[in-house]
Every structure is written in structure tokens, then in C-alpha cells.
Design a protein around this nucleic acid. Structure first.
Lengths: 212, 212
DNA sequence: CCATGCAGTTAACAACTGTTCTCTGGAATT
DNA sequence: AATTCCAGAGAACAGTTGTTAACTGCATGG
């Protein structure tokens, strides 16, 4: 059950969210390591010192953004890789879900792609952790599939990492298509869909013949 | 033939190289978008204004770093994917070459991984271009292989991109292993080798059965 | 109802940034 | 030998940064 928090705490959460949103917007054109705290507070319309009530530093804010961007994604992952329907349909469904997610949360996707190898160690670490969790969940889902009979745990995790990387790469391509000029968008999006579909299909083939 | 350039031009190239080296070193702990020109000149021991004799901005310097990091890599790519020896041996050879490259030029690898999706558009563009060239070269090399008989150009390029992404991902993992504490290095490196080997092998299997 | 807590403000700090203009010494050209 | 060129130096600029301290006003808990 949800405890209705006082008008005080509510207001605090509101400015906190405003700081996160402003930061995310500013990060579309730069990296976290160059994001200044004054820049963020200015965008929100709040005094620079107010920042410290919510975050120790911009790196700290970055870690919070990782939670926001990836924390809520776990249920989606599960259904994406779930072993229902024929393989070809599952691939199409997964890619469609990725496309929708990029469409709905482009700034989050950009942030993760950018900061995964970015210049701020704690943020890299947080992303690494979340992606490792994703890989574990994908592994668990793959294990349910009859195709995985006879696979070692290690090999399942290997494949799961391959899938996670592939998803991120695809998401990044969708994002680039989204960023381009409006009249090219449809073409580029369908091109990415087609590319990603065939790559997924090829990996699926490798999976089927792994135990040969 | 090489024209021996005067002592004037030589000195200029020397400071230019010093600026690039200093920048690369500074970029181990931050992103290009937060790299200041004064920071770089200070590290070299040269006046801030001297920077302008070589680069218009730090973004410009970043593009030059992309050339330095990836420009000289094309001959290596060719031999890496060359279709000699049995498949298993080729995989091992490719991964070994990646490991050696990361060992020899860790800062370059880190720079590319970091700025590929980084906050500086011209640099992203430059990396995208170079990687596209790599993919084209890999495609050409794959086409020579008898296994590729009957493949469409599009499908070959699709696979080439998959290989290029996989190489970069592997390089990044080797780098992380290299950055960790010395006593874990050997274990982590061999773990990455083993993981990458199996992923490459699985992709290879998918490749063999593509036309089924 | 009153005392406490605490989100956000104001003001000030030393340090730093990119960029401009002017100057200098020595290599390059004639 | 005289002249031009130009990589780098030096000084100054307005603007920015993170962090500190002391404050204010209002929601909260006793």
C-alpha cells in the first residue's frame, strides 16, 4: 500500500523530479561529465544551492537517472523474451517493443547509450549492474524454452549477454533514426527494423545449432 | 615518397602530437564534452592560445583523435577477418588480435567506446563513418569466403555490422579487465576471451545455416 | 499553539573557462 | 642579407563554475 506523504515531502519530490527532467533534457547535447549543477538549477528555476538538498553531485544525479531509465524496465524485458509464439513472430514482437520504447523515452535511451562507457565511473558502474541484471533475467527466460535443453548455465548467460547488447545496439539505431530529419524518419526506422530482424534471426539460427 | 618537412613544420607537428597525447590521457577520466582547451595546453606546458594554431576547438581535436585511433586500423581489420584457416582457428586469431590491440592502445579504445555515443556530434559522426568503412571492408572480406555463396549484398553487410559491433563490445570488455586490479587481470582477461569466443562461434553457426 | 525541522534563498568566494588582441623570436623565402 | 611569415607567449576580458555560510518562511510533530 502507498503511504500518502505530507505536502512537504511531496513538494521535495516534485523539485527532485524537475531536476532530473531538466538534467535529462540538457544531456541530449552533452555528456554527464560536463553537466554543471548550476546549469541544471538554472533550467529548473531554482537556486544553485537547492541542488544539494537532493544530490551530492551531478554524478549522484546521474546514478539516480540510471535507476529511472532502467529500473522500471525489468517487467518489460521479461515479456519481450518470453517464449510464446513461433520464433519469427517473437523476433518481430521484441523489435517492435524496442522501437516503441525508444519512441516513448528517447532521452532515457540516449542517456544510457551515452553514459554506459561515459566519463563518470559511478554511473558506468550503475549501468553495468542493471544490464547484468537484465542478462540474468533474459537467461532465466531463455532457460524455459525447450530449445535450451542441454545448454550449460554459462552458455545461456553468454547468449543472454549477446541479446542484451543486440537490444541496446538496436535501440541506439532507432534513436538515430528518430533524431534525423522528419522526412527520412519512416524510411530509416523501417530500415533499422529490417536490419535488426535479420541479425536477431541469425543469432536465433546459431542458437538452434549450438549443440551440433 | 615522403617530403622531409622543414624544422618549422616538424616542430609544429611535434606540439600537435603533444596536444593529442595530452588530451587522450585526460580523457581517461572524463568525456570530450567536458575537456577544456586550457586543461590540454596546461598539460603540455604551452600557452592556451597556442591551441588555436592546431585546432579550432576541442571538438575539432576529437575528430583528429578519431583519425588517429581508427584510421590506421584498416589493414588490421582485413587480416583479422581474412578467410584462411579453419573457422575455429579464425575466431581465436581474431580475438587474440583484439586483445593485443587493446593492450597496446588502451586509451584509443576507451576514447572510441566513450565518444561513439558521446556528447559531441562531429566526433560521433566521424566514428560512425569509420565504423561504416570497417563494416564495408569486413563485408568485402566475407564475400570472398565460399560460405557466402548465395548471400545477398544486404545480408553480407548485415552480418558485417554484427561482427563490427561484436568486436567493439569485446574490446570494451578487455579494456575493463585491463583497468581492474592487477591480480584479477589474468582471470578476467581469459574469461572475456572465453565469452567472446563462444559468441563469435554462435554467430558463425548462424551464418552457416543462414540459407536453410 | 508553539517549537522544531528543513526545502529553498541570498550573497559572496576564489578559481576557472574560451576568446580577443598585441607582441616576439626565429625559420623560411627572396 | 633583408624581408616576410607564423608558432607560440603574454595579458586582459567577461562570464562561468562548485561550495561555503547565514538566512527565511512554512509544514510538521509534540
Amino acid at each position: 500500500m502507498s503511504h500518502t506523504l505530507g505536502i512537504r515531502q511531496a513538494q521535495k519530490q516534485k523539485t527532485r523530479k524537475a531536476l532530473l527532467d531538466a538534467a535529462l533534457a540538457l544531456l541530449e547535447e552533452q555528456s554527464l561529465s560536463s553537466l554543471g549543477l548550476r546549469e541544471v538549477t538554472r533550467a529548473v528555476g531554482v537556486a544553485p544551492t537547492a541542488f544539494y538538498r537532493h544530490f551530492r553531485s551531478t554524478a549522484d544525479l546521474g546514478v539516480a537517472l540510471v535507476e529511472e531509465a532502467l529500473g522500471s524496465l525489468h517487467p518489460m524485458i521479461r515479456t519481450t523474451v518470453s517464449a510464446t509464439g513461433d520464433p519469427e513472430e517473437r523476433v518481430a514482437r521484441a523489435i517492435d517493443l524496442i522501437a516503441r520504447h525508444v519512441d516513448g523515452y528517447p532521452a532515457h535511451v540516449r542517456f544510457i547509450a551515452r553514459e554506459r562507457h561515459g566519463g563518470v565511473q559511478p554511473v558506468r558502474e550503475a549501468i553495468r549492474e542493471q544490464l547484468a541484471r537484465f542478462a540474468q533475467e533474459v537467461r532465466a527466460e531463455l532457460a524455459k524454452d525447450p530449445v535450451s535443453r542441454g545448454w550449460s548455465e554459462d552458455d545461456l548467460l553468454m547468449l543472454a549477454h549477446l541479446y542484451v547488447d543486440q537490444m541496446l545496439s538496436t535501440a541506439s539505431l532507432f534513436l538515430e533514426a528518430l533524431e534525423g530529419p522528419e522526412e527520412e524518419r519512416a524510411d530509416r526506422t523501417s530500415h533499422v527494423t529490417q536490419l535488426a530482424t535479420r541479425q536477431m534471426r541469425l543469432i536465433g539460427l546459431g542458437r538452434q545449432h549450438w549443440l551440433d
